[in-house]
Amino acid sequence: MIEKPPSTAKLMISNFVRNTTGMIGLAIVFLVVTSSIFAVQISGYDPNMFDGANTSLPPSTTHLMGTDQLGQDVFSRVLYGGRNSILIGVLASFLGNLIGTVLGAIAGYVRGKFDTILIRLSELVMTFPQLVLVLIFVTFLGQGVANVIFIFAITGWMTTFRLVRSEFMSLREEAFVEADRAFGFSSKRIIFRHLLPNTMSPIVVAFTINTAIYIIAEAGLSFLGLGVPVTTPTWGNLLAAAQAPVVVEQYWWLWVFPAAAIVVFVTGVNFIGDGLRDVLDPRSRTQVKEASFGSTLKQKIFGSRKRNA
């Protein structure tokens, strides 16, 4: 009887499908993720299998990306390493975003002492160089995939926190929030049921950006020998193996391919982020223009003039 309009989710999906950048990103990410899951099947080699007879071979038809000094297949290791790297990036980003979102939502809506304490805390964490902070944590907690995820989340929630907090601070002044309060809605309901969906687009975009950042950070950390133990293949650890100048010069396939994998995946994630930003927030493209209308109108009237000080 009543014609049901398309749901928001459906509309967004159909918009995203039409977004070229986003779809390219999605395709890249999907390809990298599935091939890292089926690393062994695709490459045909066990990433941890030593083959003393075939060490340090350049790329060939049998070993697409060559082999390392221990005779392990690089292609298999790059694919397999993606598992841990992607897991670290996605989980750390998710956890950090979760902490930042919840704290930011409450701080931005409730304000008061809670907000003051959190904002000072986030400032404190931010004034510390993140790398130094991570190093301190690694020293205490030790290496390992879970620890790296935890450390990234605990040192990286502030950007999302500040973002969500400022969004909430402006949203709480909107008339519909006032109306919600006049209807007697509880703060919990207003924060999580009404305000959070309105903040989703910056949060989702922050999530993709952070994922990319953490994958690169993991690589950097492992390169320094402080991330995941060398025995676990990650893109970072593969790169770390290429520290020696002789490797850089002579065994280029050992570092070029993991680096390429990082670049490809991070680009894919960033593409998805760009696509999502367009789909979730069509306003972001027009706002600037409107805001400056008044002054430009005046400038038009008197024409462009010399700015004599």
Binding site: F293, G294, S295, L297, K298, I301, F302, G303
Partner: peptide
Amino acid sequence: MRGLRGAKIGMIFQDTLSSLN
């Protein structure tokens, strides 16, 4: 045209805050 605007034809707008620098 610029000689006309302001000199021969004056204009007043609604939004005074954004019309003034």
